[in-house]
Each structure stands twice: as structure tokens, then as C-alpha cells.
Amino acid sequence: MTSRPEYLPERLALLSDLQAAEFVTVGLLEGRDDVPSIALNKVAEPLPGDDARSRLHRVRDLIDHALVRFRGAPRPTVADAWLAPRLHETLRLTRREAAEKSFWTYLALGVAPDYVVWRHQSEAKGDTSHGRVARDRFFGAHYKQAFARLWWAAELFREGSDYRPVTVACSNQDMLNSALRLDVIDHRPTALALVRLLERGIVRTGRDVNALTSAVNAAAATLMYDVVAPDVERDGEPMRDWIATAESALPSPREVLPEGPEEQPAPEKSVEWLAGHFAELFADTEVRGRVSNAGD
């Protein structure tokens, strides 16, 4: 099994796809090899400055804890709901910073390749073949990459400082995988309304979630959710304050949920209206599904 990097520098770094490509070997993807950490850090570009947020050990400690906590779990997927809010709170990135792919690539290869393999290696088929990790878990789109997907889920599903909706969304792999790739959840009341449908048990299975998210996405092409269910105006100040206090921040709490930036919550009326609307959309797709099944 791929192990914790032998060499971990003080600071986080950036690693481009091109530089990363030579380290993402078949041996790593099959969890047989380690990442040569000294060679990797020779080509990686450390983050400039002395920002507390770029201290590598803050993240690595969190990963170590997650591994101890969930290694014995029946499925590694359960770690997502725990790690997403804590990773978000530990890194304290702006969206601009989080859009930098090379940051996530370094995190996956330079900081925690062992975690990526443990979390994303598929079951081995038969005795001969090894299970594999998809390459895009190391470097890929924000909804695929092992850590970017958790960070973005936390960013898009949180309600101001409250990470509870994040844990609900991340407890359902289908929600995490299918909603995160859709532009509609960039509208916060939409993201929160989807979570409510999960909480209320209106959608349960992966099939439900996929039917719901594609119906919501299709409806968004003709309905302007920003008008029928407006969010409050975005305000960057709480995020800036939160980032400024990173220096004095304690390690993310392991047992209780951390707290995010003190942004205004989404208007309850908007979220509820959308939750009702989505429940109707979902009921329609269910009916249609039943009719077409009956016709088979």
C-alpha cells in the first residue's frame, strides 16, 4: 500500500499537470508504489510568503487523523463527510485560490498520496489484478480530484459558517458526484434546497439523486432561480476576516464541526420555495419513470 511521504516540507506547494504526470505511475495508481517525495519536491513550486495557511503540517495532521479514524470503516467513502468541512476550515482558501489546479495536485501527490489511494482505490477484480485509483483523483476536474471535490463541496454546500448541510451532501456519494459538476449549485439556495430533499428522505437512492439533479439542471435552463429564489448579495468581507485569523486558528476540531466564515445565511424563503419546487420536479420524473418502466 502506498505510504505517507517520507519527506514533507514545511510549506504547501504547486505542481503542474506536466510535472505531476511522471509521478502518477501505474504502480501508484495500483497502490503498490510510493511517491518519490524528495524528487517531487524538487520540481514543485513552494507557495510564496509566510502565510499560516500554507503550512503543510496543518493539513497532514488532519489527514493522519482521518486515516486513523476511518481505516477500519466498512467503506472509505464515509470519511468524506468528516474531512470536507475540516479541510475547508483548515485551508481557508478563496475561490480564486481554490481554482488553481496545481494546488490540489500537490496536495494529492506531495502531501497525501496514501490517503488518495486508500480512499479511491477500486476493489480488486479477481486474484490477479490490483484495484486502481483513477488518474483524475490525483489531477482532474474540481469534482473528481480527491481533495478539490471535498473543498468545493464544503464551499458550495455550506451556509455561511454552518457546515451541517455539507455533511449531509457529502454523506451521499451520488449527490457529491453528480451535483458538484452542475453549474446550478453555484446558486446557493439551490444547493441548500437539494440538501433538504436528502434530509427529508424525499430522495434516497443514487438513482433518485441523479434523476433529481438532472431535472433541476434542465429546469434551470428556462427558470431564473436568482429571481424566484434570490440569495443575499455576496459579501467578501467575512471571508477576508476569516482568512486573516488563520494565523491564530486552532487545529480544526476533530469531534464537533468547525465554523466557517460568518457570511449571511441564504434567505429561508428562497431555500424553502426551491425545496418545494424541486420536490414537485422530482415527483414528475418519478411518475414518468414508472410509466416508461410499465411500458417495457
Partner: peptide, 28 residues
């Protein structure tokens, strides 16, 4: 109003006309 910390490269700006149509509010 846009926050610089929310944008990286190029953002797109579109203007939409939204109205109530056949009893449905919010149609583009």
C-alpha cells in the same frame, strides 16, 4: 458587484429578461 477573491481569469456577464408566463414566474 464582484469580489476579486471569487474570480480567477475571465467571467462572463449576460443580461436576461425574466417574466411571468402562463402562470409560471421566473421564466427567462
Amino acid at each position: 458587484e464582484l469580489d476579486r477573491a471569487d474570480h480567477l481569469d475571465r467571467a462572463s456577464l449576460a443580461v436576461h429578461v425574466v417574466a411571468m408566463v402562463d402562470g409560471q414566474a421566473g421564466r427567462v
